[in-house]
Nucleic acid binder design. Structure first.
Lengths: 171, 171
DNA sequence: GCGGGATATTTCGCATACGAAACTTCTCCC
DNA sequence: GGGAGAAGTTTCGTATGCGAAATATCCCGC
């Protein structure tokens, strides 16, 4: 679905905003789609490739760290790790010092597979960025930063409001 | 999981790129999370709110059109429509002229619910954009546009390469 | 008017994805 | 040092999300 964050509004002035939003959505979904496509060529899924590459780069990490790096919840990554373990790509090992922690490492097979997957293909985004004018790149970073800050503010504001709105429940 | 499209690279210069990518991901996931949170207050899910608002605005549409507007596949939206129908929010009706087509309309209940959901909460992104300096907004649009074009080019290039890489399959 | 390809939707199997609850282990405070 | 609470992981239930295959219908050419 990806809940398209924008809903049609008749206002004329918002055309520009809509285009910016579309661009952000496009960039996100496209890079996601590409990872998935790349993964498929190696019999993997998108998140599995992400995990494989992260584990290869970091040489093993806790499940929580892996979750954080993948911007996903622990309960989600547990499942991904399960399937990768089933396929012999990773191993789980209880941490000796803190037995709550599960360390996840690549098996030799997982490592070999990771090395076969070209990184360049995952970097379409980076390549496009490097192709930008240096000044544009600086501006982009600055503006996006500012935009993120504003969104963060709005979020806090909205979240307070939301609690008051939630009167008319349904199903 | 959202397959984070970026993978750690040791290069020093890429810090900036990483930050841009992070910002894009942040903006996307945040607006998605907000829709979800808003939805929850009304006993719905993110995509359901999106569908509800679209159907309210358009006054009923075919499943394919709805899918397109939601940037999702038909098979995905079928499920969403199923659950909304189960909850009495929408109705399916075969199109008389073209009996392959299924028209989806809000029930009175669905319409009432839609009207209760404030649109503003879905527009955190828009509000943040409007708060930007006009020049920044113009620049942002221009640069994102250029970036999208470059990504599109890269995608085409990569996709051709991908077919050659796909030798070493796995699991 | 009929046969074959195109189009719209659903079904099926699988992998994410999340939140809440359950469990284990750790930590800190008294 | 013992218990309360915190932290890390898993389990469970539900909802997306996709692609491939099955179904139903349309449409086009002949």
């Amino acid at each position: 679905m990806p809940d398209a964050p924008e809903v049609p509004r008749p206002d004329a002035d918002d055309e520009d905003d809509a285009r910016i939003v579309e661009a952000v959505i496009y960039l996100y979904t496209e890079s996601r789609r590409l990872t998935k496509e790349l993964a498929r060529a190696f019999g993997l899924t998108g998140p599995q490739v992400t995990a494989l590459k992260l584990l290869d780069a970091m040489g093993g990490m806790s499940l929580s760290d892996l979750s954080a790096r993948m911007s996903a919840r622990n309960s989600t990554v547990t499942g991904i790790a399960d399937r990768m373990e089933r396929d012999g790509l990773v191993e789980r090992q209880r941490d000796e010092n803190d037995r709550r922690v599960v360390r996840i490492r690549l098996t030799p097979r997982g490592r070999a597979l990771s090395r076969q997957i070209p990184v360049e293909s995952m970097e379409v985004f980076g390549a496009a960025l490097r192709a930008l004018d240096p000044k544009d790149r600086r501006d982009l970073r600055r503006i996006l930063r500012r935009l993120s800050d504003r969104v963060e503010e709005e979020v806090k504001k909205t979240e307070r409001h939301l609690e008051q709105v939630a009167e008319g429940d349904a199903p």
